[in-house]
């Protein structure tokens, strides 16, 4: 299957620290890839490189076959990105901000109105449509962030911790939205919330210390739990990432 998002051997250091150390991934259309790892494993750094914000020291990012760092503007036309923490302009209204994002993406007139209506409906933002972003609850803010990421129906969606800090009802809304978007897009979702994974992701990649330590379906990963016990994603996650963090001591 053709990969809409491809990361090739990405490396990134910050000073002496190797934040990302040779990560390669393919995400085809229709797939939701769960990008898992403990805090500080390099998830956000990888997402920032994939989204074209942070230049990698080494390696390539391809969106719909376009090299992100050679033709950034062309590549970014295929991208929807929710940065960690869903940063927004507090002084703007919900409508004003989404219209701004749409205009920068080249939408205008009827096409812009349509995209706004669709995004409002899919993220259930209608009740706060004219409100200032600074007055929104956390759940609405996160949905705002998602709305700007999906409003132009991008081929590739990069979502950094999309459900972080949401209540169970809000999480459910976001999960359904991601599943819905997956029909047309390639999606990569970073999270450290494991309960999320079986509900949303088709495939899982686990990273620790900037390297991929496991990948497969949620069941395949769960089967890697230690000592032949019950298959458990949580035990497998702790085993795999703990082993890497302890320099292999747990694996010995």
């Amino acid at each position: 299957m053709e990969a809409l998002l491809r990361l090739e051997n990405l490396h990134r250091r910050f000073g002496a620290m190797r934040a990302v150390n040779g990560i390669s991934l393919d995400v085809p259309r229709g797939q939701v890839l769960g990008f898992l790892g403990p805090n500080g494993a390099g998830k956000s750094t990888t997402m920032k490189m994939a989204a074209g914000f942070l230049p990698p020291d080494e390696g390539r990012v391809l969106l719909a076959g376009i090299d992100m760092w050679r033709s950034p503007v062309a590549a970014k036309r295929h991208l929807g990105y929710l940065p960690e923490g869903a940063p927004l302009h507090d002084e703007m209204t919900v409508r004003g901000f989404l219209a701004f994002c749409g205009r920068v993406r080249g939408l205008s007139g009827a096409a812009l109105r349509q995209a706004l209506e669709r995004a409002a409906q899919r993220t259930q933002l209608a009740p706060v449509w004219g409100q200032r972003i600074g007055t929104l609850s956390k759940g609405y803010r996160r949905r705002m962030g998602l709305a700007q990421a999906i409003m132009h129906e991008p081929d590739v969606l990069i979502l950094d911790e999309p459900t972080d800090g949401l209540d169970p009802n809000q999480k459910q809304v976001v999960r359904e939205l991601i599943r819905d978007m997956a029909k047309k897009s390639a999606i990569i979702v970073s999270t450290h919330i494991l309960e999320e994974v079986p509900a949303v992701c088709d495939r899982v990649v686990i990273i620790a210390r900037g390297r991929i330590v496991a990948q497969g379906t949620a069941e395949e990963i769960a089967a890697q739990a230690p000592q032949g016990g019950e298959p458990s994603l949580e035990l497998a996650f702790r085993h795999l990432t703990g082993a890497a963090a302890n320099g292999g001591r747990a694996a010995a």
Binding site: F53, R77, L79, Y81, P87, L88, C101, V104, R105
Partner: peptide
């Protein structure tokens, strides 16, 4: 400070 620079610079513009 707000982190919105990440949004701005991942929009399709130079």
């Amino acid at each position: 400070a707000r982190g919105t620079i990440e949004l701005l610079l991942t929009l399709p513009l130079a």
